[in-house]
Computed example of a mutant assay.
Amino acid sequence: MNLQQLRYVVATAEHRTMTDAARSLYIAQPALSRAIRDLERELGLTLFARSGRGVVVTAQGRQVVKLAQEALGAVKEIESLARQSGLPGADLRIAATPSLEPGLAGRLLPAYVSQHPEIRVQIVRCEGREDVVNAVREQRADLGLTDLPVPADLVSRPFERQEIVLISPPGTDLPDPVPMARLNGMRLVLPARGTARRREFDQIFVAYGVRPVAAVESDERRGWLRAVGEGSASLLWYRGMAERAERAGLVVRSLDPSIKKVIAMVHTRRRLPAMAQDFLTMTERGSAA
């Protein structure tokens, strides 16, 4: 049993459907159902009973939910005691996705450290937006850098828009920029079905009336560029990945019309340490410049 499972139990009890609870947690519904089943098996208890399209909390489940809420509240209070001071020599922890980390490390952090040399900055590396959200929620990070949208329980501070580009194997016969119509029938590396990221891509495809072929469906981002390099497919991703892709010998092209996503700093609805607030102020000033 871990804190993440307790959060899943509380969310399921609050929303009364696995679908709505999963959406609020920013995870796929099958992953939530599996986690709940694993916890029930571990505890030897039935926490939820199926009821139509929703779930009902059992008598045992109500006791577990109450204790889970108390435990999560206690964890937040303990962590707040340790994180509120922002004293010199403290760590500022920022969660970031692989595609956005280069901009954080190369542009934002040097500007911040030059103004606050007494603060140590730690990048919490996350596989994707869902991991950033969880890192911030669990207070493993003070701030998160990700694209929008994020769940409503987090505060988002938009500060830039980043272009989505097409990363292709060398020798691919395409113009630059690539008309969106050319994505029709194109073999692409895509996130796994049922994930929030995949739904966003599917919405883009519907909006432009194109039907790419899902050649690779995976949330293992480390393998995405490798799949492109092997000639399996092309990849839609952020301009921030362009340098890494080009170093791997891949070709980066813009899209026509251009598609951009809003990038934001996100945090929980709590009093932030002074060092985190200073970082937010710096990013907001930079976006207004």
Rank of each mutant, 00 (worst) to 15 (best):
R129N: 14
S80W: 09
A248L: 12
D278M: 02
L235R: 07
I36H: 11
A215Q: 14
T58I: 14
L47V: 10
P149N: 09
I123N: 04
S99L: 03
A13I: 02
L235E: 00
C126L: 02
Q115T: 05
R137D: 10
R226L: 08
F48W: 01
L255Y: 04
L6Y: 09
R211Q: 11
S287E: 03
A49Q: 14
P179V: 14
G54I: 13
R244L: 11
A215V: 11
S254G: 11
Q69R: 15
A11F: 07
S85Q: 03
D219N: 15
R269K: 14
Q60C: 05
L67K: 10
P170E: 10
L190Y: 00
V55D: 06
D173F: 06
G89A: 09
R37T: 08
L39E: 10
T283S: 11
V216G: 01
L236D: 03
R197C: 00
D219L: 08
A74V: 00
V113I: 13
E138L: 15
R247P: 08
G128H: 00
A11R: 10
Q60F: 04
L154A: 10
R253M: 01
P158N: 01
S232P: 00
G52M: 06
N2I: 11
Q139D: 02
A141F: 13
A289M: 12
A152L: 15
A74R: 02
